[in-house]
Simulated scan of single mutants.
Amino acid sequence: MSFTVRAITLDLDDTLWPFAPIGERIERVLDAWMRMHSPATAAAFPPEAMRALRERVWQQNPQLAHDLSALRRMTLEAALRDSGGDLALLDAAYDAFYAERNRVEFYPDAREALERIARRVPVAAVSNGNADLDAIGIRHLFALQLHSREHGAAKPEASIFLAACAGLRCAPGEVLHVGDHVDADVRGASLAGLRSCWINRVEAMWPHDDLAPDLHFDTLAGLADWLEAH
């Protein structure tokens, strides 16, 4: 398939790097941090209990589904408060989380592919997560970044895709959204009027009959190759 792409919007977690290892490390780092700075909290909320608390906080605050940072802070605050810990530790605990959250390991192809893509067209990061492009060291590869927290709504809401297109000064049909998630990325972007590219690293089957991605690759390098060829 051949069509014009004037700009790209790009998902981050599980598109440029796997998130599962980050999540596992966050649990270990927070547990070690609590054991050092708030032993009562570590005793009351070992990793499994902290995970359950986080899920409970998220379920009780669906209005914040677009703001993972706020939900994480609320979880840490609840853990400190419920264990009799010092709430003055909240900012430092969050900083420990955030530093680990932004220690990412790119998929083998992804960093070079991103650089190749960014040389061709402007790229906007569009993410429901809270990755910090400056901390990760790739901010220079993006024309803009739009997180659901600052936008006020998360993918697959059409508004976040359309806001990114406006920031790129392109019509939706001129923008290709690239991501791993079938619904939040591909279906959401398609219904908002963007072109879509599914990065399917796990060889999953496409589940929808009513629409399909415009492009489908098993690596981001596949998209970089396509752009260079077209």
Rank of each mutant, 00 (worst) to 15 (best):
R72L: 14
L176N: 01
V182P: 09
R111F: 12
T9F: 04
D185W: 09
F217L: 02
L162G: 03
A212N: 06
V126Y: 00
R119M: 11
V57Q: 02
R56L: 12
E105Y: 04
V104E: 07
A32R: 13
W33Y: 10
P21F: 03
A229G: 15
H151A: 13
L194T: 11
V104Q: 02
T41P: 05
E115K: 11
E27F: 08
K155D: 03
L71I: 09
N200D: 13
E55F: 08
Q59E: 14
W206P: 07
A224M: 01
E112M: 13
A163W: 00
H147K: 12
G85N: 01
N130F: 02
A70Q: 15
F106G: 09
A113M: 10
A166W: 02
I160A: 05
L68Y: 11
G137R: 09
D14C: 01
P46W: 11
L168V: 10
P213K: 09
R54G: 10
A43K: 10
C170H: 00
Q145C: 12
L30P: 00
A124K: 00
R120C: 12
R169K: 12
N200K: 05
A189E: 04
E77W: 03
A93N: 01
A154L: 13
D185G: 10
A79R: 10
R103M: 08
F97D: 02
L87S: 13
G152L: 06
R120G: 00
A143S: 13
F161D: 04
L16C: 01
V186C: 13
A221S: 09
L89D: 07
D185N: 05
W226L: 05
G129A: 10
R56A: 14
A44C: 12
A158F: 02
A42P: 07
W206G: 04
L68W: 09
F97Q: 07
I160V: 11
A192H: 06
I26R: 15
G129S: 05
P18A: 14
G152H: 07
A158P: 09
N61R: 15
M36Y: 11
A65K: 14
D225P: 04
R169W: 06
H216E: 13
L10P: 06
L71A: 02
R54H: 12
L89S: 10
S2M: 11
A124H: 05
L227C: 10
